Computed example of a mutant assay.
Amino acid sequence: MARKNLPPSARQRRLGTELRRLREQADLSVTKAAALLGFSQPQVSSIETGRFAVSADRVRAMARSYTCTDEALIEALAEMTGGRTRGWWEEYRDMLPPDALDLAELEHHATAMRTASVIHLPGLLQTRAHAHAVISDVVPSLAPPEVEHRVSYRIKRQAVLYGESPTPLTAIIHEAALRMGFGGPAVARAQLETLLDMSEREHITILVIPFGAGTFPSSGQGIHYMTDTVPNLGTVQLDTDHGSAFLDTQPQLVKYRTVLDRMEGGSLKSAESRDLIRRVAADL
């Protein structure tokens, strides 16, 4: 039986937010926009909060009525229509927090990704054993079935890195994350070997910030930046102890692009990063 009254996903909310921004840039109130479009005021409000599905043609009509002339942006917004994507993550709806499903959907639609980690390795590059060791130690503790659900979800997210058109990924990892040894020497060694294997793939770049590199921005949190077909439609996900935070305003996107650029600037090049990973693995 189909589910009813699902809350809007982050992607649906983002579409509504972008349409609201276009309306405001055109200096139109909700009342004026509704009259211009032939909608009711509640319809416009529901579209802008992501609670009302809207067709691609209607999005195009709205954007042009708001005097938007950026065709690339209009088409990118049109591609975001159609309601919630019915992807593999829907099977976890009653098992995981909503932001986990939002993250998987955003990754599914991303055209490129950049991620940065200091203590934990990026989830998209974790082995099952490493993920199990990390997730088993969260607070509050999870029951064994919950641990297995979260581990399987994390591994399935990695599908975006495989297939005929894998999503390009740049991962910036601090040396501290390489040396944490989660799960014990055997698990840690296998995880580092997986990093090396993944770094040899053409669409994956792994850069390591070595000890001694000095200070760098946002050293206390993980950053995951997902690029859309139009750069201004990107989304930043920050990992926190209380869940994911999604950021998408232009100042926020500019800030985190700058942060990631600076972190890359303080990292070793790809070949040097692989050499360091091999040395850490040999020490285990």
Rank of each mutant, 00 (worst) to 15 (best):
L207G: 00
R262T: 04
T229M: 08
H108Q: 01
V147R: 10
R51K: 15
D70R: 06
A177H: 01
M113V: 10
S55E: 12
R278G: 06
L77D: 06
A190R: 12
R93K: 02
E272N: 13
S165W: 09
L178E: 04
V230H: 14
R201A: 04
G214W: 03
A159Q: 12
E272F: 11
I119A: 15
F211N: 01
H120K: 08
V280K: 03
A282K: 13
D275W: 05
S55N: 15
A129E: 15
E264N: 00
D102H: 13
R13V: 03
A26P: 04
E90Y: 14
P145S: 11
I206E: 01
P231S: 04
S40P: 06
Y66P: 15
A100R: 12
F182L: 04
M1N: 07
Q126A: 05
P145H: 12
V160W: 08
N232Q: 14
A190I: 07
E200N: 15
A53D: 15
M1K: 00
T240N: 14
A282L: 11
Q237L: 11
F246I: 09
P166I: 10
A61G: 00
Y162P: 04
T229K: 00
D197E: 14
A76I: 00
R58H: 15
I277H: 04
R84V: 03
G234V: 01
E164I: 07
R20E: 08
E18H: 12
